[in-house]
């Protein structure tokens, strides 16, 4: 019984700037572990978004580029088309991907660009101070919706995974979460699958990860995990929404 656990090689020794209990750290580690396991560290290029994860390049030990807000898929398209042998992934939050970068991600997915996107959905703009995001839950309080999100004039949260899955272009689209150990393990499997599809040059892949933002939600890290499970998961169901043909 028992097993060893060490920090993956892809992660630097830097202490992250994330708040205590922020699931960005878990997502970072999963990506690093997957890249280690696939042995692709030497040919991976990551693309940092704008948001809390803008400094993520400090925590990884492979090539990184920083994109303008929401434009990571455009940058990834460029890199992947010039150098199809490189493994390219973008790591974007919901403020970045679902709001300003909506056009980029939809067209990149529709063109079937063969890179991987890790989409962190924590229902809020983290870095800028907890403003309402397109994925904010109905009645959720944020700094720009102090009385709770009113769906009458702001609509319902956007389900990115389901929306992209409606595209006819083959893709691997899945939604996972990081709220419990069993989900974390599944999330890692999904990320590995996404990178594997890219390695096989099969299709675009997107892994949405339901995450927490204890600071901006105004909760303790544990309450935030519970809130994500109780409030977000019923609306954002987990699962695989699309796989390329033959799988």
């Amino acid at each position: 019984m028992g097993k060893t656990f060490q920090k993956p090689q892809c992660l630097a020794d830097t202490i992250t700037h994330y708040c205590p209990g922020c699931t960005h750290g878990i997502a970072h580690r999963l990506v690093a572990e997957v890249i280690d396991e696939l042995g692709i560290r030497g040919r991976t290029v990551g693309i940092a978004p704008v948001g809390c994860a803008v400094l993520m390049y400090n925590y990884f030990t492979f090539d990184f580029q920083e994109a303008a807000h929401g434009r990571a898929p455009a940058m990834a398209t460029g890199i992947k088309r010039v150098r199809p042998d490189l493994m390219v992934f973008t790591y974007q939050g919901d403020g970045d991907l679902a709001s300003i970068g909506m056009g980029e991600i939809v067209h990149a997915a529709n063109r079937g660009e063969k890179f991987t996107t890790i989409f962190i959905n924590n229902a809020v703009y983290g870095m800028t101070g907890g403003q309402m995001a397109p994925t904010t839950m109905p009645d959720q309080r944020t700094t720009t919706s102090p009385f709770g999100r009113k769906t009458v004039n702001t609509g319902m949260p956007i389900k990115i995974a389901e929306m992209l899955a409606t595209l006819e272009t083959p893709a691997y689209i899945t939604r996972q979460t990081l709220t419990r150990p069993k989900y974390v393990k599944k999330a890692k499997k999904a990320i590995k699958q996404a990178f594997t599809y890219q390695m096989e040059n099969r299709c675009f892949s997107l892994v949405e990860l339901i995450s927490t933002c204890p600071t901006n939600w105004g909760m303790t890290p544990l309450d935030a995990l519970t809130w994500a499970e109780e409030k977000m998961l019923p609306y954002f169901p987990l699962g695989v929404f699309k796989t390329p043909e033959g799988d």
Binding site: M1, G2, T4, F5, K7, T16, G25, V184
Partner: peptide, 17 residues
Amino acid sequence: IFCAICCTMCPDVAIAI
């Protein structure tokens, strides 16, 4: 019991076995 569940959930990769 060294199940590494704490490692799996630690957001800061502060735990090693």
